[in-house]
């Protein structure tokens, strides 16, 4: 069985620490790769640039994608992923502070698999992240390639 991983796209270092910590609590910490802006996320997923050496067939089980990102926004990253046949089916969960109806609508229109708002309360936040990790790594059945 191939290595199952999560790609976290998050530019806020504190959020990153808190998310990693929440996943570590359920022993998923070593399955996480982190991209810190939109462009880096695309490079990772298309195995380009600094990730050119990454094996093409190692798709993450899920991409946790923030919306407010430097360089390329989360919505732009999502659109690019969906436009490319190599990545069009990768599960993407928007994980964001935004509760704008507009962002939600845009995300679903671009075929995001889920839209999750980051709760302000840390306990709630940690629990949400943990549930996402377990769900996409253990519960969800991916496409068999």
């Amino acid at each position: 069985m191939k290595k199952r991983s999560i790609l976290l796209v998050e530019d806020n270092p504190q959020d990153e620490i808190l998310i990693l910590r929440a996943l570590r609590k359920i022993n998923l910490a070593n399955c996480i790769d982190v991209a810190r802006d939109g462009q880096q996320a695309l490079d990772y997923l298309f195995c380009e640039g600094e990730f050119a050496a990454r094996p093409q067939d190692e798709e993450p089980a899920v991409v946790l994608l923030d919306i407010g990102l430097p360089r390329l926004s989360g919505l732009e990253v999502l659109a690019r992923l969906r436009a490319d046949p190599r990545t069009s089916l990768i599960p993407v969960v928007m994980l964001t502070s935004s509760d704008e109806e507009r962002d939600r609508l845009k995300s679903y229109e671009s075929r995001a698999n889920s839209f999750v708002r980051k709760p302000l309360d840390f306990a709630e936040f940690a629990e949400t992240v943990a549930r996402l990790g377990i769900y996409w790594l253990a519960t969800n059945e991916p496409i068999q390639k």
Partner: peptide
């Protein structure tokens, strides 16, 4: 929200 979450988290 983000810094607030960080303060709460830490």
């Amino acid at each position: 929200r983000a810094p607030l979450r960080a303060i709460d988290g830490f």
